[in-house]
Simulated scan of single mutants.
Amino acid sequence: MTRLIAIALFAVLAYLLLRYRTNAQFQKWVAIVLSGALLAYIAVVMVSELIR
């Protein structure tokens, strides 16, 4: 369930950034941070599944 909430939050944030046409530099940094957070989340999920 937590995974679905995280994915939904990423999708909503991406939609809001594109919808309201925020600063391009800000969009770039948000995209980098969100990508990094998503990769870290995937790594944590993979490691926790492998430990089981």
Rank of each mutant, 00 (worst) to 15 (best):
A6V: 09
V12F: 15
M46Y: 14
L4F: 07
L9P: 00
V12R: 13
Q27R: 10
A14G: 08
A6Y: 08
K28A: 14
Q27H: 05
L9M: 07
A40S: 14
S35N: 04
R52W: 01
L9V: 08
Y20M: 08
L13V: 14
I5P: 00
V45N: 11
V47R: 13
Y20I: 03
I5R: 08
S48L: 11
V44D: 10
A14V: 10
G36Y: 00
L39G: 00
V44Q: 10
A14T: 12
S35Q: 00
L4D: 09
L34C: 02
A6R: 09
R3S: 10
A11T: 06
L16S: 09
S48D: 11
V45A: 12
F26S: 05
L16G: 05
Q25C: 02
Q25N: 09
M46L: 15
A43K: 10
Y20P: 02
A31N: 01
I5F: 05
S35P: 02
Y15A: 08
L17H: 07
Y41P: 00
A24L: 15
I32D: 01
I7S: 00
Y15T: 10
K28V: 11
V30L: 06
G36N: 02
V47I: 15
F10G: 08
V47T: 14
I42A: 12
A43S: 13
L39P: 03
T2C: 03
I51P: 01
L4I: 05
R21S: 05
R21F: 01
M46D: 09
L50D: 11
K28F: 15
I5T: 04
L9T: 06
V47C: 10
V33M: 01
L34K: 01
I7K: 08
A8G: 04
A11L: 10
R19F: 05
L13C: 13
L50H: 09
